[in-house]
Design a protein around this nucleic acid. Sequence first.
DNA 1: CGAAAAAATGAGTGATTACTCACTTTACTT
DNA 2: AAGTAAAGTGAGTAATCACTCATTTTTTCG
Lengths: 216, 216
Amino acid sequence: MLEEDLILQQLLNEDDILTEKQKKIIVAAIESFSEKGFAATSTSEIAKKAGVAEGTIFRHYKTKKDLLLSIVAPMMAKLLAPFILKDINKVLDRQFETYEDFLRAMVENRREFLVKNLPIIKIMLQEIPFQPELREQFKEHVAKDTFRRFATLVEHYQAKGQLIEMPSMSAVRLSASAIFGFLLARYLIVPEIEWDDETETERTIQFVMHGLSRKA
Amino acid sequence: MLEEDLILQQLLNEDDILTEKQKKIIVAAIESFSEKGFAATSTSEIAKKAGVAEGTIFRHYKTKKDLLLSIVAPMMAKLLAPFILKDINKVLDRQFETYEDFLRAMVENRREFLVKNLPIIKIMLQEIPFQPELREQFKEHVAKDTFRRFATLVEHYQAKGQLIEMPSMSAVRLSASAIFGFLLARYLIVPEIEWDDETETERTIQFVMHGLSRKA
DNA sequence: CGAAAAAATGAGTGATTACTCACTTTACTT
DNA sequence: AAGTAAAGTGAGTAATCACTCATTTTTTCG
């Protein structure tokens, strides 16, 4: 799988136009932003951690906020990654016979994405409420794209008689709550406790299926 | 219902020892912290909004962080409020015959709490990752107290044969994901879209019940 | 190589930061 | 009303902030 899930790698290889110092700046910024928060991190601190002069940061990014956006923005586009499986409705039948199969694939897909990009995701979640640009991007990508595609997909399985009738928006919301509630608890809220990943994953999927499938 | 759900009122009446100026400081701080974030809010800004001299803030609070903690800390204790409904184990049978009844009561209870204290809750969620004191309080109250009481309650309904056998921790996690996923989406993430509250609430409860109850 | 361009530097900018303190105003007690 | 304690003030503090820019270093390429 040469899937480019690692946003960091993607950031650092962008167009091959990034200098070594610039890469170090990005790495240092991600570390500091995720640990202390954007507003509480100073540019001098980033420069020191990156081993560059403070002026170098502003040679590549007009402002500190610019640096933040250059890190977080690529994240947004990737949020809908699991739904770009080409022409959804047509390929779906062969790829995922049941909603359950789809759910299972999505949990694993998003789990890998989350684990690989944890610090950037933390920054994103922290700053979305305060950066209008990020809020807008989030609504664009998540609300419009991802959510709608997810909904289309649910309608597909409803039409096949697998899922109970219910506004697809609600079905998506319930599915997403269960899945991301699990992933967030597992990797962000209480990662320090012992988790039986396989069991909890399966339980979560079965929980959703019991809640949404036609044949109880 | 003279339930003291409003943390703000509680803060302002504390011991009757708060001066008028101090109350204005708290109100102004809550507003600024929730809008711009703790680190991005200056004490001069709070003073201006409160209509007091900047020195007055530091007469009552040693540091800016002290002010933050005095606002958010009382929140924590209230997070487990729905579980202090008198002596759980004993009153339970007569109060909530079914898990469904309990869920319904909890959703309404937490919904009111969330709506009434939205700004303070936003501040809390934002700052928990960065303030060790808050992290600790959160784990103490939520993990130890609330989660455990919730689990005890689930075990009660499992023993009555209403819920399927499953580690109570998992059942609590799944229930909480669905409920708080709903409430967060409704009031924090996308409050601007139209919600049919009654229908969505009921759907959420039924979703949990289908996922966890014995008789499908 | 050598010249031009790009990258990097770090001292310096004014503004802003959280916080202090000597002092004034207000409130309370008798 | 006088005396005392608490509350409030705002100019002042050193530190730090994001950002600039003249200069130096490195890279590119004919």
